[in-house]
């Protein structure tokens, strides 16, 4: 069977290509640069040059494909041209779905994000819970719009299943949007010495291999038009760095930076970016987020997709070993 994966050079897409290829599927790895260093190498993987903003390249690539995994997205914190978020995440998703319809693709798994729910007020968020704050973060806003696009195609009779990974980490290259790996690798090298706020803020950390298996399970067992949170364990920054310290044997004195200081600094960064066009280190909308937890429940995926969560410490141990070796 032929399967197309968009975003094949991304953190999730790359590993997904590899696992599908190992399962014996013929994988078309859709990417803008077929010489990209992150492209997975396997006899069953055929790199296909194209752009999700170029529907013709999509149509050519989808010929003879029964399934499509749409993982491509603009997942960075900041883009010089803010329209890029809408273009890539919303228009790109519409292009992929429209083309898949024309090409007669049977089933699509769309990679969304837990960011469409954003922060948690008390209990971990489930798929049925509403969003409780505004959409100040461009990535979250445009991924939400993309989900609305997906809904339109589902209403037209397309077979699409959506998966919502949380903060993904694991064995793989440190891509621009992979903030967790950046934190771990920075800590190991002694470059990351900061714990935001009092370290009590909780986020959900999902292990890459679990998320990739969750994608494949969603393709096999997911209910059309449904969303599935693919998460891991909820951990505070303090727990995160304690685990990292304990497992890596690397000890650093960490500085706890109050949220107000981060917010103040982020305003300065935002101004710098506005005046110079240089990429910011941090933005105010992300500083605000440090006041709230982001806890998510993967119960629905566990029940319906047989989704398995690797214990946080195991996942961290493997990630540390990988990052130390690379």
């Amino acid at each position: 069977m032929n399967i197309l994966v968009t975003g094949a050079t991304g953190f999730i897409g790359r590993q997904l290509c590899l696992v599908l290829a190992q399962k014996g599927y013929q994988v078309k790895a859709f990417c803008r640069n077929v010489n990209h260093p992150y492209l997975a190498d396997h006899p069953n993987i055929e790199p296909v040059k194209g752009d999700i903003l170029d529907p013709y390249s999509l149509l050519k690539a989808m010929q003879g494909c029964q399934q499509v995994y749409h993982t491509a997205a603009m997942a960075k914190m900041w883009c010089r041209n803010p329209n890029e978020f809408t273009e890539t995440n919303v228009t790109g998703t519409r292009n992929v779905l429209e083309t898949a319809k024309q090409a007669g693709v049977k089933r699509i798994v769309y990679t969304s994000t837990c960011g469409v729910w954003g922060p948690t007020l008390k209990h971990p968020m489930t798929e049925d819970d509403p969003r409780v704050v505004g959409f100040q973060i461009a990535y979250e806003r445009t991924k939400y719009f993309a989900e609305l696009e997906v809904n339109k195609f589902v209403q037209q009779g397309m077979d699409v299943v959506t998966v919502n990974p949380s903060r993904v980490f694991g064995e793989g290259p440190i891509t621009d949007s992979n903030t967790v790996s950046k934190m771990i690798s920075g800590y190991l090298k002694g470059k990351w010495r900061i714990i935001p706020g009092d370290g009590g803020q909780i986020s959900n950390y999902a292990y890459l291999n679990d998320v990739v298996n969750g994608h494949i399970a969603a393709m096999e067992k997911g209910i059309t038009g449904n969303r599935y949170i693919l998460g891991g364990e909820d951990k505070s920054f303090n727990e995160f760095f304690e685990t990292l310290e304990g497992l890596s044997g690397v000890h650093h004195k960490m500085v706890r930076l109050p949220q107000k200081v981060i917010k103040f600094y982020s305003r300065f960064e935002a101004l710098k970016t506005k005046l110079t066009g240089l990429a910011p280190v941090f933005l105010p909308e992300f500083a605000d987020r440090l006041l709230l937890n982001q806890k998510y429940s993967s119960q629905k995926a566990t029940k319906q997709l047989d989704y398995k969560i690797t214990p946080f410490a195991d996942a961290m141990r493997k990630t540390i070993a990988y990052l130390k070796a690379h």
Binding site: K122, H123, D128
Partner: peptide, 14 residues
């Protein structure tokens, strides 16, 4: 319009 989900969420959260 998803009112049931919102109400359920508010009851369990608050």
């Amino acid at each position: 319009t998803g009112l049931g989900n919102l109400a359920a969420y508010l009851q369990k959260t608050f």
